[in-house]
Structures are given as structure tokens and as C-alpha cells.
Amino acid sequence: MGSRSFSATVTNRGGELSSLDESLPEPTGAEVLPGESVRTSEVMSSLDHHEKGIPTSDAGLGMTIFDCQDVEVFYGSHQAIRDVSLSFGLREVTALIGPSGCGKSTFLRCLNRMNDLIPGAKVGGHVIYHGQDLYAPEIDPVQVRKRIGMVFQKPNPFPKSIYDNVAFGPRVVGMEGDMDEIVERALVRGALWEEVKDRLDENAFGMSGGQQQRLCIARALATDPDVLLMDEPCSALDPISTGRIEDLMSELKERISIVIVTHNMQQAARVSDKTAFFNVELAADEKSRTGVVVEYDATETIFTNPSDKRTEDYVTGKFG
């Protein structure tokens, strides 16, 4: 990818993509609690002074946060992905799309070394983050996960209070400061504060699925990561909850970089600046299936004018 910048891509939902917007109803009904009128972005601006070290100006735009070179993953003797070379821009949303089993999630889990936890998984190549190879021997994977947050496919709150869910990350990484304040800030950034501020002691299992997922996002934000990895975060949610999370993503993008795996091409088109299309390649023996990157470009280009036939077939719904 080199140093090409994609900052001038579809960040607003204009042009041809606007039709997709209509499939997304405005948030109404069950999830909107009475009295919720404060827009998340307004609250966020008042909390700006909490942000340490991460510039909020446009200074960083066009820079690269991740530079992956020839990443490959083996599960035992099976090669799950190979030759993945992608670089992600600072404070951009990058979508990874492709058919099932193409290794998108596997690749995503390389970015915060979650694959380390799978017995028999082996990662090759380089994942350069802020100029540092995350797979260098001196790197502590625990510190990596602290800086690079992750949200999973199925909401996975801890069976504890809402407060304890959010406070868990700051506590284990030893964050300093007033915990109440840290929890509030995270919940505000997760667009959940207004809904839950009066019931922080209640068990998170009592929330709706959409709320649980936003809690998981807030929980991930509590440790001030500068990247958020999202593994199909909306696949278990209804359209209204999905819409709220997509809104949230575009707000979060002002400060952090997001990499999102999604099955939903409309979602990729709505939220992302750049899109990488993964596909499955059959090995010569037609038995083992390995994921590769077919095409990586500005989201608009991928969806309107892809250069590869397979990409075109996939985004137009011919397979997948």
C-alpha cells in the first residue's frame, strides 16, 4: 500500500451511497429512553481535556497506524491466511469484507495478538504499529491489548454490574484517577451514559442486546485505546441497535482508528473510509482453504469501481 493516503474518501454518506441510508430507520422505540436528548458528540467535547497524548487536530490525518507486511496465520498445519499486507490510516475506519471463512476475523485477531490465545495458532510476518513490530520478542501482548481495544461478534458483558464491567479494564491495567470519572467518561463515549447512569449497580445481563454491545464498546474505550477492533459487532443486533453503533463509530473516528470486520456490505459502505476485500483460495489439493486479500482501496472505489472481477462479483452479490 505504501504511503498513499485515503483521507479524501467517503466520510459523509453522500452520493450513490445515500440510498443505503434509507434502509436504516432513525433510532426509535425500545432502546430510546425518556429524557435522552443529549447528543454524544456534545458531551464528548466537554470531556476533551481528559484525552492524553492523542492529538485531536487534523495533524495526524493521512498517517498510518498499522502497517501489516506478509501476515500469515497457521492453525496447526492448516494455513488460515497468507500474504496479507495492508496498512490502516490513523483515525480512519477500515472495513474488512469477504465471504465466510476467508480469514477476516483471523486477521483482525492478529492486530491485538488475540491469536496468541488459540492453542496451535502461529502468526508469521510483521504487524507494525506506530513503527513497532507487535510480534517482536520483547513486546508484551498484554500491553498490546491494553492499547488496542476489541469488540466481539456477540455482546460479551461480564456477569457483573454495569459499573464493574466498565471499571474492569482500568483496574487491571492500573489506570490512575477517579474511577467514577473514568467509568462515566467511557459510558459517555460509548453513547450509553444517559441510559444507564441511574442503574450502574445493576447486572449487565439485564440490558438489551444493543445496550450490551454498546457497554462492551464503552468497556473497551475505558482504557483509552487508540485503536478499536470490531469483529462483526452488529451481526447479533437488530437494525435500530446497529444504527446506533454505526453512529457511534463515526463519532469515535474523530479520535481513534477503527478496523471493522463485517458481513454486511451496506454497513461497510456506510461506515468505512477504506475497504479490504478478502477471499478464499483453494489449495491445489482442493482441501485446504486459505484467505487472501484480493483488493484494498477507498471504500467508494471498492463499491463503485473495483478493479478485480472477484471484488465486483462479491459486492454486487453474485457470491458470498
Binding site: M114, R145, N156, P159, F168, V172, A222
Partner: peptide, 26 residues
């Protein structure tokens, strides 16, 4: 469920923090 372990580890918890503060209480 394994998702509880993943959730804790992804937040920067160590193995023992995950086990002692999430798995064991659950």
C-alpha cells in the same frame, strides 16, 4: 463461556487477572 475470557484478555488483563477476577467468580 470462552467469550468472557476473550473479553477480559482483550481489555489488557493478564491470564491470572482474567482467571481470578472473571472466570472464578463466574
Amino acid at each position: 463461556p470462552p467469550s468472557i475470557r476473550d473479553g477480559a484478555l482483550a481489555l489488557g488483563a493478564t491470564k491470572w487477572q482474567t482467571v481470578s477476577r472473571q472466570v472464578l467468580p463466574s
